[in-house]
Structures are given as C-alpha cells and as structure tokens.
C-alpha cells in the first residue's frame, strides 16, 4: 500500500477544502478521476461513439469492474493497461468519485424504427435488466441511456463464449443467436431510454 497513508491524509485535506473553499481544489479523488475524462468525457459523461459513460454507475459495480480490469480478469482493449497504474486505495477513490455522480442519459440519435425493433427483442432481458434497463445494481450496470455504439460493442464481445468474466449463462444464451442488425437495434433501444 505504497500511497495509502498519503491518500487518506490528502482526503482529509480535501474534506477541509470543502469547508473553507471550493469543493474541487485539493481533492485527490478528483485529481485521479480527471485523467479519465479524455476518453470518457468531462466528469465521466461520454459524448459518444464507443466510449461508455461511467458517471453514476453503481459503486459496487464500478469497484468490481475496475479491479477486474486491473487483475486482467475482465477483457478490455485498453482499460487493463490503464487500471494497472493504480493501487487498491486509488481504485476505490476513483470508483467512489464516479459513483457519487448522478447517472445521465447520453445523447441518442437512434431512429424510431430502430428503437421499435429493439424493443421487440428485449422482452426476455427484463428478467435481469428491469425497468427497460433503467435500474442498475452492484451486479449489473444500467443500460438505459448508455452510449449506443458502446452497447453494441459489448454485446458483440459478449457473444464470444470465452469472454471474461463470463456473462450470466442466461444472458449469454439469449444473445448468442442475435444478428448484427438485432444487436444494433437493441443498442439503439437501450440508448434511447431515459
């Protein structure tokens, strides 16, 4: 725990700053989390394409996935390389900082037709992704309002039976047979929900 002592000391400084000055200055969690914005958008609200919004994801989910990236047990193109730069205390500080923000739907440009088609394909998903994906929990993130192309990329990757960590068996079986167009429509549906 190389930086643990320093980290908590600085968190105290941050708390003092809250009382005497602006909320942000002096806060180590902000310092760490600001570095993510170049890819995930200011404060973790993505402006789109394939980068996911991460602000407002459930705390337990964030802590878990960030650790899994670091440990190499969650497949990624780049997050593993990034997360190996942080120790446990830093990962928790970052996860908690993003978790404390409200979830906001990313801008969606999905067409009516796509959204309609997507809705017809997700009936069974609601067993777990309740309320059309609006509610997340520590086991699974909200899908409603997530960036469309990111959802499509994740669904394609999840069709690979070797994906780590494995998706719940129930979900994997459901998405196995989805076509490219089905995935696009499902992504459009969830992305358009607020």
């Amino acid at each position: 725990m190389r930086t643990k002592f320093k980290l908590s000391a600085l968190l105290v400084t941050g708390a003092l700053a809250l009382a005497t000055g602006p909320a942000m200055a002096g806060d180590v969690a902000t310092e760490l989390s600001n570095t993510c914005a170049g890819c995930h958008g200011t404060n973790g609200y993505s402006a789109g394409e394939t980068m996911p919004s991460i602000a407002g994801l459930p705390q337990g989910y964030l802590r878990r996935v960030l650790m899994e990236y670091r440990e190499g047990t969650r497949q990624s193109t780049i997050m593993g390389r990034i997360m190996r730069g942080y120790d446990d205390a830093q990962v928790h500080a970052i996860a908690d900082w993003f978790a404390a923000k409200p979830w906001k739907a990313a801008a969606s440009h999905a067409s009516e037709a796509q959204v309609h088609k997507g809705k017809s394909l997700i009936a069974t998903c609601g067993a777990c992704h309740v309320d059309d994906g609006r509610t997340g929990n520590d086991a699974m993130p909200p899908l409603a309002g997530q960036v469309e192309d990111y959802l499509a990329v994740v669904l394609h990757a999840s069709q690979d039976p070797d994906r780590t960590p494995p998706q719940p068996e129930g979900m994997r079986l459901m998405i196995q047979s989805l076509s490219h167009d089905d995935i696009a429509a499902i992504a459009a549906f969830y992305a358009s929900q607020h």
Binding site: K6, T13, L16, T20, A25, G26
Partner: peptide, 28 residues
C-alpha cells in the same frame, strides 16, 4: 490535457491557500 488539469488543480489550490493533491497523469 492531463497536464492542463494538474496545473489547474494546483493553481486553484494555491489561490485558495490549500495544498494541492499528489499529481496524477495519463497519456494515450
């Protein structure tokens, strides 16, 4: 981008008379 944020945090901390956090930087 990363450097601009570290400098901004530091300057804001200085203006408010508090200590800046340990710096953290990323490049991709």
């Amino acid at each position: 981008n990363s450097q601009g944020k570290v400098a901004a945090t530091h300057i804001a901390a200085r203006i408010n008379g508090i200590s800046a956090p340990e710096p953290s930087y990323v490049n991709t």
